[in-house]
Nucleic acid binder design. Sequence first.
DNA 1: TTGCGATGCGAACACTGTACGCAGCTGCGT
DNA 2: ACGCAGCTGCGTACAGTGTTCGCATCGCAA
Lengths: 246, 246
Amino acid sequence: MAAKANPVPSVWARQQSAPDQPALSRTAIVREAIVMLDADGIEALSMRKLGARLNAGATSLYRHVATKDELMELAVDEVAAEITVPPAEAARGGAGWRAAATEAAESFRATALRHPWLSAVLGQAGLAYLGPNLMAYSERLAALFTAAGFPEPSRAIDTLLSYAIGMSTTEAAWLTTVARSGETEADFIASLMPAAQQAAAGHDHLTDAYADAAVHAVLDPVAIRDAKFTYGLDVVLDGLAMRLPD
Amino acid sequence: MAAKANPVPSVWARQQSAPDQPALSRTAIVREAIVMLDADGIEALSMRKLGARLNAGATSLYRHVATKDELMELAVDEVAAEITVPPAEAARGGAGWRAAATEAAESFRATALRHPWLSAVLGQAGLAYLGPNLMAYSERLAALFTAAGFPEPSRAIDTLLSYAIGMSTTEAAWLTTVARSGETEADFIASLMPAAQQAAAGHDHLTDAYADAAVHAVLDPVAIRDAKFTYGLDVVLDGLAMRLPD
DNA sequence: TTGCGATGCGAACACTGTACGCAGCTGCGT
DNA sequence: ACGCAGCTGCGTACAGTGTTCGCATCGCAA
């Protein structure tokens, strides 16, 4: 071989080629899948495209991942690691639990909006996943709410999470629709208004609500969504506070 | 033709053939699609199978429905008609609004569980649909909550609906998973417990919670789910009650 | 009777997830 | 040093998907 005739330079050149292509591991596959999902949405992810992105054939992925569903499950668990929950100590003081719960819920929402495909997957598969990050997440929530003194912490958690999931799902789906339109959120609302108002014709409360909402939403849709989430979150936390002993 | 030689019997025979095959209309397509979705889940619905069910070729459907997404949108709106909302008058009295809101939320949940695919579709498309039944549904909710005296009825509605959506989505996805397993819900829980407990190993609160839940859930999972929904619903309604003037 | 618009459909296209069997590399036991 | 075993990547192939297009057919209007 030529390598034997002039070993030194060729060796260095060869060595380099492997490390910068990390060799198609399970974690590399999941990481790249998340990148694609974030960028182009859930229906843009195919095994062939993912393989191409990793300089690999489509079917090579199946050496590291049993099926596409399993890949999605891994992606969900990977992303679950981004959701933060304050440590249980934060809830020991009287009103500390409330700030902590708020922080947890807002972190959930932020993650769901950062990865809008998450809601779609949860809608199909639910929370039956048992990945390590999801388990750790549940554990931290349980610790927080027991420390807060809730007699039935899992009930309280389910309530709060249901609200967070419902609101975030709706919001993520909306943002996905907006993104697909190519317009800004405000422009999209504006161009949707005629159809919406026509559909609301004959429904008095709806036309009123749309007229109100349209004005504000076009100005600052992001602030409106934030306020909406905070309002409902406070409602839920008020209701939960009534379940606390003392 | 032979028909002319003996017109009467042949006419009657021919007339019958059309009416009992309602000729592939848009409403017939949507109706049959819902039947298939209810029976076999969202991924079992393909245009070819749906066409076959209607004694029609796959591509014939496209004369009445622009695309599969549009078909799903029509199916969602059709199913939305099943969700009941008490009339606004029910909320005029002091505590009447609470019973009415409870009824509305429970009807939502019941519909979502009767058509488990609904959650999956909402997770992908959100509530941006403008179908007549969905509009009527929103209108009735708005009427109810304004009659109840809420200063910001749409905020209250969004909160309640978010909770209902989140809880029902999780529940529907769970029931879908159970159904796919072929076991009863109690059996499925039992056969899932080993894996769950192993995954919870090292997480103290989780193992406790699982141990508790397992015993009760195996006995009567349906009652547990009902109670869970009711608990969270009461939490939300308590929080909303605090926003009512007086 | 002659059209004509609406309706159904077979074939085809570009794509999907995945099973299978073959090639090559790597590292181990001898 | 050698050979072999197993792991990894991949080309091919299959069954199935949503959707387009052009052709046939049918009922009704003129």
